[in-house]
Design a protein around this nucleic acid. Structure first.
Length: 856
RNA sequence: GGGCGAUUGGCUCAGUUGGUAGAGCACCGCCUUCACACGGCGGGGGUCGCAGGUUCGAGUCCUGCAUCGCCCACCA
């Protein structure tokens, strides 16, 4: 127990209580609890290379209120924290922070040190360093970032068990990712394939469907003349990408399109490049697009890939991995015009092709300017291209039905978020490409034999032994080989790629739960046969993190990964635009916590309905701060009356006291049900509403009786004190998930031990519920309201005496008033209180003088 | 094109089995030392996006429409 200060304040409560929770292990997971006694949370690992913003504070607070509720309900809460330091965002941050770039061909230099530390001059050239040096820098910088994050989370009051942390690039995560991969490869759920792939020409890597986004870009329809080989004239197509003309392998129109039906099966010659291509029919061709007939290029977009595959067309690839036109013309394409675009970017090539077409007269009319959606890698700047490459894939399309069924098995909060998932799964048009041609990530635990003629044989991958994980095939050798055999005929090569960041994030339950750790039964306790309890996350990553986790859980366990998914909304600017850094309106979270106090910021976050996009609103934080201050003062006042004695429900005898307790019982039931349905916002709103009513009306009504200054009514005093104590205890605990700092402070004034380790209020502790008892309290409140109104209208203070109050009402109301008469007279300063039957009215007559002269 | 959500006082939002519209902020007025001026009390202010329908009765259920926002899609 700690001493109740004379002037309670919120200042310093974060610094006071966060260390206490740490040293007392308040949030430590009970690793002996069995699965049914555990509540496990698949915490989102924040991207440490990014900056924390109010959106993080917002959504992590939501999860924390749930964690705290479950803990008070008696569950052993497994609430870990992960750091997402894997992947491109970290690479980019390291490149900019240290002024370096990775180069896989360079040897490792153990003595190398970075020249800059976040102070890279604008004109500095990037120093090329080895992959291993680069990765060491990534680990160094993310280590620093993690400390900043942890500090913020502790200040915010997240009830995370800080002994349960992981990083998505640490050995454990790598081991789990690789083990999951090996298992999928063994069952055929993962496979490799040489095929056209979405490709980012700047990052020089394959990307997955889930990482695409459309961006509106200006473009133009170019009307081109293809020549019929039967000399019957020309066929006109419209294209936005004339530079792909040499990659054209066919024309295609809808099978029912009368205009082109006669042409099906014939051959035409491409303008400029003179290639012979067939005219074919396919139902994906849209008669109302352009001229209704399109050129198929290898590859302009994903539709081209579909046509190419389904019509079994040849390949004329002209775009290289760097986004430039490759040097050699494809088979059947005129080499002279091709030489003029070879080596150029697509943009330069387009200008050149248009110039040549104009000269040859095969460009009909002026290009028609349009804007159209173009596919981009969500983290990239230039449009994606499609290039043929060998990649690893995880099966999704073949499992659609099962994945949809899993989506229905998961309980979604709010429920309608389920549609996002279903929409995505139903729209899948290719398996999940999980390999990336990057540096910082989890390598594939795979080698390939090198044949006698020096080529890697991808058909016979050598998988790492699971017991040796994690492995980096670039620096370790497969069983039975020596390092000297690397890259030589008869030897081996390591798979050079790393996994998609989601390939690791999608096993966060396994990573956090120590799935692969010998001798650990943690995973059984937190996952077991049911999956974890909760996955909290944003709706923007349903198609990535949520979906891929379900995919992995399906592949490994054929089971949903968690019972519930709680989807948070976004933080919007006050003007309802999505908050973004580029607009310069991101508020620094730590500054915000310092300015308003952590409890106040948490109040703002918890006021938002689950899943609802919410405006950043300092006003709401001020209200939260007022609530916290009110709790300090009301607690001090009530404890001053009761002396901090434990509540004794049996002492409650007054109808007014029964009234507040009955309302309290309703509140407890309501808040509990709301929390069980993940509606923390409702639980908060109800509790807050009760609490203000308790302070403004109930406390005012009974405080004189509770003091019992003249000692005439000890039973009445005991009754009031018991109800005050009972209410205060319950309210403090009901607010604990939202305002952890101030509630532990006020709880410590009359209890040993943290409020956060105390049971959630239950109906049983409130004593037997007395029905109808609310009417005395309700009547008292109404009459007191009339008295206050009279004083306000008479421009008197609330302490001004009242000569008489006459209540006219039905008998039931009069009885209720009579039952509360003592409290009404005392609280209102009423000399005479009378009642008569009739239409309800309350007449208040104020005293002529306030009587202060008499008193003195 | 398909899907989802939102639309309630100036602002931000509640309104859970359909029963005469609520809160906070803002605004106006009143009240100061005895829990709280980081306070208390009171007041004004809304035909609940529009149009139909079901019902004794609809902010609440059904249909259609409008506006805004988001997700998805094979937009040559």
């Amino acid at each position: 127990m700690s001493v109740m200060p004379d002037k309670p304040t919120l200042d310093g409560l974060e610094a006071k209580w966060a260390p206490v929770w740490e040293t007392q292990g308040t949030y430590k997971f009970d690793s002996t609890a069995t699965r049914d006694a555990v509540y496990s949370i698949d915490t989102p690992p924040p991207t440490v290379s990014g900056s924390l913003h109010v959106g993080h504070v917002f959504s992590y607070t939501h999860t924390d209120t749930i964690a705290r509720f479950q803990r008070m309900r008696g569950k052993a809460v497994f609430y870990p924290m992960g750091w997402d330091d894997n992947g491109l965002p970290t690479e980019r941050r390291v490149q900019n922070y240290y002024g370096v770039a990775g180069d896989a061909s360079l040897p490792y230099d153990p003595a190398w040190k970075p020249k800059y530390n976040g102070d890279v001059p604008k004109d500095a050239r990037r120093e090329l360093i080895s992959r291993r040096n680069f990765i060491e820098l990534c680990q160094e910088l993310t280590g620093q970032d993690e400390l900043v994050f942890e500090n913020l989370w502790r200040t915010l009051g997240l009830s995370v068990d800080w002994s349960q942390t992981y990083a998505t690039i640490d050995d454990r995560s790598q081991r789990v990712s690789q083990k999951a991969f090996l298992n999928m490869a063994a069952t055929g759920q993962a496979y490799q394939l040489e095929a056209p792939t979405l490709w980012d020409i700047d990052f020089q890597t394959a990307v997955a469907q889930a990482e695409l986004e459309d961006r509106e870009l200006p473009g133009a329809y170019h009307r081109l003349a293809f020549h019929r080989t039967d000399a019957q004239g020309d066929v006109f197509i419209e294209t936005t990408r004339p530079e792909l003309l040499p990659a054209c392998v066919a024309l295609v129109a809808h099978p029912d399109d009368e205009r082109y039906r006669p042409l099906f099966g014939t051959t035409v010659t491409t303008p400029l490049f003179g290639a012979q291509v067939p005219v074919l029919a396919h139902p994906l061709a849209q008669p109302d697009k352009g001229s209704g007939i399109a050129m198929i290029c290898t590859f302009g977009d994903t539709t081209d890939v579909t046509w190419w595959r389904e019509l079994q067309l040849p390949t004329r690839a002209i775009i290289g991995r760097n986004g430039r036109i490759i040097s050699d013309a494809p088979e059947g394409v005129a080499s002279e015009p091709y030489a003029r675009i070879a080596g150029k970017t697509t943009k330069q090539a387009q200008a050149e092709v248009v110039a040549m077409l104009t000269k040859s007269g095969e460009l009909i009319g002026e290009p028609k300017k349009i804007t159209h959606p173009v596919k981009h890698f969500e983290k990239g700047d230039r449009p994606l291209e499609i290039v043929t490459s060998r990649q690893w894939y995880v099966r999704t399309v073949a499992n659609k039905d099962r994945l949809l069924e899993f989506g229905r098995q998961i309980t979604w909060h709010p429920d309608y978020m389920r549609h996002r998932y279903e929409n995505w799964v139903e729209g899948l048009n290719g398996d999940w490409c999980i390999s990336r041609q990057r540096f910082f990530g989890v390598p594939f635990p795979v080698w390939y034999p090198v044949t006698a003629d020096g080529e890697a044989n991808y058909e016979a991958p050598i998988y790492a032994d699971a017991a040796t994980l994690p492995v980096d095939p670039q620096s370790t050798t497969p069983p039975g080989f020596t390092e000297a055999q690397r890259g030589v005929p008869g030897g081996f090569v390591g798979d050079p790629d790393i996994m998609d960041t989601w390939a690791t994030s999608s096993v966060t339950p396994q990573i956090a739960g120590g799935w692969d750790e010998p001798g650990s039964d943690l995973f059984e306790r937190i996952y077991g046969d049911t999956g974890m309890d909760l996955r909290p996350q944003g709706h923007d990553i349903i198609r990535t993190w949520l979906f891929t986790t379900v995919v992995k859980s399906h592949a490994e366990f054929d089971r949903i990964p968690w019972k519930s998914a709680a989807i948070s909304g976004w933080i919007l600017d006050p003007d309802r635009k999505k908050m973004s850094k580029s607009k310069g309106n991101v508020v620094t979270p730590l500054h915000m916590l310092e300015e308003y106090g952590s409890d106040a910021v948490r109040y703002w976050a918890a006021s938002a309905r689950p899943g609802v996009d919410t405006a950043f609103d300092p006003g709401q934080m001020k209200i939260g701060r007022k609530l916290a201050i009110k709790l300090l003062n009301a607690s001090k006042f009530v404890l001053g009356i009761t002396g901090g004695a434990a509540p004794e429900p049996a002492a409650i005898t007054s109808p007014v006291d029964h009234g507040i307790v009955a309302r309290l019982a309703d509140l407890v039931a309501d808040a509990t049900a709301a929390f069980e349905a993940y509606d923390y916002a409702r639980a908060l709103e109800r509790t807050e509403s009760f609490f203000w009513n308790f302070c403004d009306d109930y406390v005012e009504l009974v405080k004189n009786r509770a003091y019992d200054n003249d000692g005439l009514d000890p039973a009445g005093a005991a009754s009031a004190r018991a109800a005050l104590s009972l209410s205060l205890s319950a309210v403090q605990r009901l607010l604990a998930p939202f305002l952890p700092f101030v509630t532990d402070e006020v709880w410590s004034w009359w209890h040993d031990g943290s409020i956060h380790a105390t049971p959630w209020p239950a109906a049983a502790e409130l004593g037997p519920k007395v029905d109808e008892s609310d009417s005395a309290y309700a009547a008292a409140t109404e009459v007191l309201g009339a008295i206050r109104r009279a004083k306000t209208e008479g421009k008197r203070s609330m302490r001004w005496p009242v000569t008489s109050v006459s209540v006219v009402a039905d008998q039931a109301f009069l009885d209720a008033v009579a039952a509360a008469a003592g409290d009404i007279r005392s609280a209102g300063g009423v000399s005479e209180l009378s009642g008569s039957v009739g239409d309800r009215s309350v007449t208040v007559i104020l005293a002529e003088t306030d009587g202060s002269t008499l008193r003195s």
